[in-house]
């Protein structure tokens, strides 16, 4: 037993190696939160465009004008974005961002936030789109018949209801994202996983650092999962 404690001391306390872990932990949180923020913004925009196109293409064609063609082009761009992002591994996207797009970047963290943000935007967009499509069309018609224009109807009536409907799914996406960011080490970012790996490399001791890292992920994820469960129950109660 004392031997194990000695070893813990050696792995984490000598040379203040625990600080690596703390730094990694916060980098992981930073990347995840930043990426989610970007992802939600991209997601709302892309989902709004995609569902507008799907809903309105018939009537827009009938009413004529340039609007229909503009929307069709933007919609096509969104589709390409979704296809490319969801069709390639996130590690590859991350490396492209770091080694090709932002070659001169000193700090990998903002690059990782950007890359994971662009990536999660594609998944969040599809979550939001499903959410928008699940809202009864009568809500839309009620808004339009009161005199709201298309974007006001989205903003004041559809999107708030959509958010409520997809909140649990969105939280689960956030939880998945935490684990996905563990590949940030590929571009030299000291995230939680990378820190564990560095400590292991310096101490030639793999068991303790890697299991500690795994335990930290597990604790964060379990905590958030139980929070989402509570949230889901609250939302269900307020429905009726």
């Amino acid at each position: 037993m004392t031997e194990f404690i000695e070893e813990l001391k050696f792995v984490f306390l000598d040379d203040n190696r625990y600080k690596l872990l703390v730094e990694g932990f916060f980098n992981t949180l930073k990347i995840t939160a930043g990426a989610l923020l970007i992802g939600v913004v991209i997601g709302i925009v892309v989902a709004a465009i995609r569902s507008s196109y799907d809903k309105n293409k018939e009537t827009m064609k009938l009413r004529g004008g340039i609007g229909y063609r503009v929307l069709a082009v933007i919609n096509a761009i969104c589709k390409v974005y979704l296809t490319v992002i969801r069709g390639t591994p996130v590690v590859v996207q991350l490396m492209i961002c770091y080694f090709i797009v932002f070659v001169s970047a000193q700090d990998g963290v903002p690059v990782a936030i950007f890359a994971f943000g662009i990536n999660s935007g594609a998944y969040v967009a599809e979550i939001f789109r499903a959410g928008i499509m699940s809202i009864d069309n009568g809500q839309f018609e009620a808004g339009r018949s009161l005199g709201f224009n298309y974007f006001q109807t989205m903003r004041y009536i559809i999107i708030p209801q959509m958010f409520k409907a997809v909140l649990p799914t969105l939280c689960n996406e956030f939880i998945a994202l935490i684990k996905e960011t563990s590949v940030a080490g590929y571009v030299g970012v000291s995230d939680l996983t990378k820190s564990g790996n560095v400590i292991a490399g310096r101490t030639f001791e793999y068991f303790i650092p890697l299991l500690t890292v795994a335990a930290i992920y597990l604790i964060i994820v379990s905590l958030l999962t139980s929070l989402v469960g509570k949230l889901e129950r609250r939302l269900r109660k307020s429905e009726r």
Partner: peptide, 14 residues
């Protein structure tokens, strides 16, 4: 449309 109110079969309250 601001000058034309509409009432639906299924209410469509928010």
């Amino acid at each position: 449309r601001q000058k034309m109110g509409m009432v639906f079969q299924h209410f469509n309250l928010f």
